[in-house]
């Protein structure tokens, strides 16, 4: 009987141990799959944003080089036509109308191309691009946009990081105007040898950050995806009626000194 009890107890214990071990294995496998899924999603996101930026760059280049240059040729030809059309008043009027349309089209093409990939960002970097963006908003709206740039070290920033931070600023300003109805926006860009800090603040309507998580809007999701892509940390602060602020910290990787713009 003692042997029977011992056998039964051993079997029960063996079962429990076996179950725990198999559960641990399943858990480890599930974590591995989860990790792979996460990596896959990150890669997908990275490629998506990268493709989007490359496509924007291509369209901007095509607009500028192909459409823009051809419009300039038409513009020149119209000048020649105007000289010859002086004899016919009806024709001169038509040429003037076409001039107006062509000038508008050249301006629009330049603006679209500029929005798709600001040449300032491409040639002079993030700080100048944000400054230019702020100036363009101030020219066209009543928005009070302040931008401060504090830089203790002139450390080069990877192009991909600059593009993403610039897109985030664009999205934030758009949100502040569209959803927050803000009249004042402050942007600070601080850079030292170790990190880049971008601080954004508006005096808009604000919102409950917990409610934001439940919403499926693409704007904030896009910002978070871009931050995740460049591996930057961020902290968001907002309350209904108390404006919105976002602080982004991008730590420079050790090898970033070797990366040139």
């Amino acid at each position: 009987m003692t042997i029977g009890i011992l056998i039964m107890l051993s079997l029960a214990l063996a079962f429990i141990v076996f179950f725990n071990r198999s559960q641990r294995k399943i858990l480890a496998e599930q974590m591995r799959v989860q990790q792979l899924k996460l990596e896959h999603q990150e890669n997908l996101l990275y490629n998506n944003i990268k493709t989007q930026e490359e496509e924007r760059k291509r369209i901007a280049k095509d607009l500028h080089d192909e459409v823009g240059s051809k419009l300039n040729v038409i513009h020149l030809n119209l000048h020649r036509l105007r000289k010859n059309a002086a004899v016919s008043p009806g024709l001169e009027e038509t040429v003037s109308d076409i001039f107006g349309v062509i000038n508008d089209t050249i301006d629009t093409t330049r603006r679209i191309s500029h929005d798709l990939l600001p040449p300032t960002l491409e040639n002079f970097g993030l700080a100048d691009a944000i400054k230019e963006l702020c100036e363009s908003y101030q020219r066209t709206s009543a928005l009070d946009l302040q931008f401060d740039h504090l830089q203790s070290e002139n450390r080069p920033i990877e192009k991909m990081v600059e593009v993403n931070l610039f897109r985030i600023i664009q999205e934030l300003i758009s949100n502040s105007i569209k959803h927050g109805q803000a009249s004042q926006i402050n942007i600070r860009l601080l850079a030292n040898n170790k990190e880049l800090r971008l601080e954004y603040q508006d005096n808009g309507l604000g919102f409950d950050p917990d409610q934001l998580k439940k919403k499926t809007g693409l704007g904030m999701q896009n910002i978070e995806s871009r931050l995740q892509m460049i591996q930057a940390q961020h902290s968001l602060d907002s309350k209904p009626g108390a404006g919105f602020s976002l602080s982004i910290k991008y730590p420079f990787p050790d090898d970033s000194l070797s990366l040139s713009r």
Binding site: L11, I26, Q30
Partner: peptide
């Protein structure tokens, strides 16, 4: 053994272990 172990499942597993051990030992 093929399911994912959540907190409720863990508690039931402990109770189940108690049942298996007690009734096997005292059979």
């Amino acid at each position: 053994s093929h399911n994912k172990m959540d907190s409720t499942f863990k508690r039931i597993t402990i109770i189940n272990s108690a049942i298996l051990l007690y009734y096997s030992g005292s059979l």
